[in-house]
């Protein structure tokens, strides 16, 4: 016997399940051992395939050979002016190198973003494990926000949470790549959600804006930039709930 969800297990492990179905499916998983085993075996397969599949690496000689052959093959046009004929191979090679550099730069930026997610996730987990997760304990935003005065080189707005399911627990100063920032802790039912706010700028990596976290990570997260500040929200609640908090924070930042 297979349930209605069994055809969607691959989509779930590939993070391709629509947000609307995600919560429903996660709830279903708790009560369906067959689907839970299916998800587990798929995650195992993804994991072993990923490590086994990254197997072959090109030699530096091949890279050099390709660069040279591109320059030679795309050679001078017989109809163009002599200066153009002379420069075509160089321009062609420069174009390909630019392509390679661009793709490398994009990849590096992405990789730094992924690394930053990991570091901030560590901060979040370390906070949850701490006996004193916050330095200022208050559900009142008018107490928490002023506490950061003199501790941070910027200020930020906190949302009004009275009509929402979220509750502010408190905050502390966090450091990320040698920069001080605010670490705020919220609660949604039993889920703890961290909000990190840092000043924009600098060369340090930061989670890719709007990007989903690594697929292996079971945390939900969102990152964005607003008013010269970088925001990163992470928690183990579902993505829709996390997004609701994100919207509240964005709305507060604009007010």
């Amino acid at each position: 016997m297979s349930c209605d969800w069994s055809a969607k297990l691959d989509r779930y492990v590939d993070s391709e399940l629509p947000a609307g179905e995600l919560t429903e499916f996660q709830e279903h998983l708790l009560g369906c051992p067959k689907c839970a085993a299916g998800v587990l075996s798929r995650l195992q397969l993804k994991h072993v395939t990923r490590s086994a599949g990254q197997r072959f690496r090109p030699t530096p000689e091949l890279r050099q050979k390709i660069e040279q052959s591109i320059g030679a093959r795309s050679g001078p046009s017989r109809n163009g002016p002599s200066w153009l004929r002379r420069w075509v191979p160089t321009l062609a090679m420069a174009a390909v190198l630019a392509l390679m550099l661009a793709s490398t730069a994009i990849w590096l930026r992405y990789a730094r973003g992924e690394q930053a997610v990991g570091e901030l996730a560590d901060l979040h987990v370390a906070t949850l494990a701490s006996a004193n997760p916050v330095d200022v304990v208050s559900t009142d935003r008018h107490t928490v926000k002023p506490w950061f005065q003199g501790k941070l080189p910027f200020t930020f707005n906190l949302p009004e949470l009275q009509n929402s399911a979220f509750k502010l627990i408190g905050g502390s100063v966090a450091y990320f790549h040698q920069s001080p920032g605010a670490h705020l802790l919220f609660e949604l039912r039993k889920h703890r959600i961290s909000v990190f706010i840092f000043r924009n700028g600098g060369e340090a990596g930061w989670p890719n804006p709007g990007s989903a976290p690594s697929r292996d990570l079971t945390f939900s997260s969102e990152s964005w930039t607003e008013g010269g500040l970088r925001y990163f929200v992470i928690g183990d609640c579902n993505r829709a709930d996390l997004h609701s908090l994100t919207e509240l924070l964005k709305s507060a930042a604009r007010s």
């Binding site: 297979s2 067959k34 085993a37 299916g38 998800v39 075996s41 195992q44 072993v48």
Partner: peptide, 16 residues
């Protein structure tokens, strides 16, 4: 057609 694989515990043990 999509033919989802039947996943069971023995399979996860084999993959491990």
């Amino acid at each position: 057609s999509t033919t989802p694989a039947e996943a069971d515990t023995p399979e996860t043990l084999l993959l491990a």
